[in-house]
């Protein structure tokens, strides 16, 4: 019974990792850009929510509605002002620029918010539990997982059922031809990064309510997100959810055996998948 419980906790943790990863997957799918500052942007969003919560005395669930447009704007401006200028066949400039951005963000947060661990005040939500027959799950992990499914379903709908999604797919396939059809790749990319930052903010909400965060934790969130994307298969959003679940289960099982093995077990699962299925569980894009 303990093992069923452990695995269930792992699956729910996987929802959080899928939320980390969905934004990364979206941006990569559309513009082949890997944003090494992705994890630090999650942490930035967590601090933004914390700021709104403290200033206005709102519950994080309400504060997120103020943080979302802010983060969307940051993402839009970042893409338009900086990242669009480094897109191209050469992958070196975007990697180095986003790596620099990661270091800049960490240190700005360190100066403005100090190195202390913080947590979003979730009140009762943080401790409530749901009784699901034989097992009990925390309300917050359950909400995280439900949000991950909702976010991925929404992105899937946006991507394949709307005019905006058609524009995303068009510039992803061929920006030059897409621009002949009246689409401006630069604005489409900016919009995509803005949407990715909305997902990042939702991820930050749960990250901050479930555990403490500090300015230095961004890079390891990036690594988990990246592992989820690769395990799921590039370009597959539902695959990203599966990848998150694999990492989450591996980490909780590893931690159940020896607390020091938690992160290591996630990495090992990643390498094993890479060894058996180099293109991930549900590969779609050919990259």
């Amino acid at each position: 019974m303990i093992w069923v419980d452990t695995i269930l906790q792992g699956v729910l943790l996987g929802g959080l990792y899928a939320l980390f990863a969905a934004g990364l997957s979206l941006v990569f799918g559309i513009m082949r850009l890997v944003n090494l500052a992705h994890g630090d942007l999650i942490v930035l969003a967590a601090y933004l929510i914390l700021g709104v919560t403290t200033l206005l005395g709102l519950h994080p669930f309400l504060a997120v509605f103020l943080a979302v447009p802010l983060m969307f704007g940051i993402g839009y401006a970042l893409q338009l002002g900086v990242l669009n200028r480094v897109l191209g066949d050469d992958i070196l400039p975007p990697l180095l620029v986003t790596f620099g951005l990661s270091i800049v963000l960490q240190n700005v947060l360190l100066e403005t918010a100090s190195a202390d661990s913080r947590r979003l005040p979730a009140g009762e939500t943080a401790v409530e539990a749901l009784n699901l027959g034989p097992v009990t799950v925390g309300l917050l992990p359950f909400l995280t997982f439900a949000s991950a499914i909702a976010v991925i379903a929404a992105l899937q709908y946006l991507f394949y059922r709307t005019a905006m999604g058609r524009a995303f797919r068009a510039v992803s396939d061929d920006p030059v031809t897409a621009s002949l059809m009246g689409i401006r790749p630069a604005s489409v990319f900016a919009l995509a990064t803005g949407i990715a930052m909305v997902v990042v903010t939702i991820a930050a909400l749960y990250l901050g309510m479930r555990a403490t965060f500090d300015p230095a934790i961004g890079p390891s969130r990036l690594i988990y997100a990246f592992e989820a994307v690769i395990i799921g298969g590039l370009g597959s959003l539902w695959g990203t959810l599966a990848g998150g679940v694999v990492i989450g289960v591996a980490q909780t099982v590893g931690a159940a055996i020896n607390p020091e093995w938690q992160i290591l077990a996630g990495h090992v699962a990643f390498l094993v998948v890479l060894l058996i299925r180099p293109r991930g569980l549900f590969p779609r894009a050919v990259d």
């Binding site: 890997v34 990697l95 690594i223 990246f226 592992e227 990495h267 390498l271």
Partner: peptide, 12 residues
């Protein structure tokens, strides 16, 4: 880019 993060994972 995935090579970059892959090496990072192994370093971790």
């Amino acid at each position: 880019a995935y090579f970059a993060i892959g090496t990072w994972v192994i370093a971790d």
